[in-house]
Design a protein around this nucleic acid. Sequence first.
RNA 1: CGGGGCGUGGCGCAGUCCGGUUAGCGCGCAUGAUUUGGGUUCAUGAGGCCCCCGGUUCGAAUCCGGGCGCCCCGACCA
Length: 484
Amino acid sequence: MSEKQGVTPRNEDYSRWYTDVVQMAELADYAPVRGCMIILPYGYELWEAVRAGLDRRFKETGHRNAYFPLFIPESFLKKEAEHVEGFSPELAVVTIGGGKELEEPLVVRPTSETIIGWAYAKWIQSYRDLPVLINQWANVVRWEMRTRLFLRTMEFLWQEGHTAHATYDEAEEETRRMLDIYRDFAVTDAAIPVIPGRKSDSEKFAGALHSYTIEAMMGDRRALQSGTSHNLGQNFAKAFDIKYLDLNNELQYCWTTSWGLSTRFIGAMIMAHGDDKGLRLPPRMAPIQVVIVPIYKDEAEKTAVMDTVWRMKATLRDADIRVHVDDREGQTPGFKYNDWEMRGVPLRMEIGPKDVQKNSVALARRDIPGREGKQFVPQEGIVTAVRNLLDDIQANMLKQATEFRDSNLTEVVGDYQRFGEIIESGGWALTWFSGDREEEQKIKEDFQCVSRCFPLEQPYPNQTGPSIVSGKTAQKMAFFARSY
RNA sequence: CGGGGCGUGGCGCAGUCCGGUUAGCGCGCAUGAUUUGGGUUCAUGAGGCCCCCGGUUCGAAUCCGGGCGCCCCGACCA
């Protein structure tokens, strides 16, 4: 028992590792209701970082935030045939309010296309009203059978963007623009080398013309859909009567899009970067970028050390570096090192009597374990030194994750057995694929996996190849992998 | 929905088969020492409707019946 101090090693039990990290790093806790979670302050700060990174990008591209109701009339869900079919099994429905049976049950939103569609129909009259570019930050509920903290919970937080346009091309451009924003955010801020691509017909959103996704590889090599962007065509416009008068005074249906990224993304960060010591957070997302651990033996040393500690803290804070001083009494420095490593803080600053004497500090990187990642730097010019290190850690984490991803991708052409071996060994296979539902169903039955996406960046553009199951000519290659 | 497992201080468990005084242990927590450049050590202490209801019994955490909840595997799943 006392042997086990940290998280369960990943190769021993990846699931346990994940649960340990989430709980020991105090990201989330279980709730009294099955499948629901309490997002703890440290976890919520990560979500705030996600929000900040995305919100800025949304606003830069002309979107504005609004808020729509949690309750949706049940009839709304039924207006779009595929949509209702896709979501019915996972709806939470309110039938009683104020002690009385409701005339029409209210659905707790699983997503807001319908109620926003209703509003857009009211608001849009003319081509001059377009485009409508709105995003909302909200919670949604889906009655999931099997849940896991952050990855799949019955209630989760997300943002959902909903836009309306005059033409197919504009809607498609918007869909792709938002996918690229997700890609840029994931890569630049979260250091996750996601693969943007298009979903196959059987994997697309219920009611969409087509869906795009960013797919990330987790530490156990399973795939995680980390954000999605949908071109809804005119399906919802027709269901909700979203129409406008064009230049020629002719009534037209709008073209709409929706796109979302949820608290699941926190799961992606945990699993894309974490190691056997626990969480590893990319500096741009880390609630605490630098943790200062003071070292002293007695009161005299403490006074001198803490003086330097508070001075360093103020210097870093004034430079907008997120810094925390671990001044807990009664814990040894060694304990604190492990504790903050488990919590994923990218950079640790140690300040002891020797440092006070030499006007130096010790800096230890989370991304490079042991002695190699540790260095002594002068207190003079600490801001630049820390900034450079944080940048380097950010870049290195992306590099590490990219190398890991690429070393687990295998291209396979026309060899179904080999394809199966790759999938069953846990890797990702890139192969020609027709996108037909029957083929995908066969793969699902044979290997318990479906296509992740047709990557936007095709390795052999303008070429064709034999679809993996049927052998018939396929236009594009797709990734296949087991997923969360 | 099918199969399996489990409900005992905050957490992880022992005790249940074979009923019997104050229900133990580890971790955590509190207080005080000690220690502090990689998870110190020790002392003292706080903390329990033994999931719920009913039954058997002089006596139930333990046996019997019923219920509830959770976890795992499968099925299902944007």
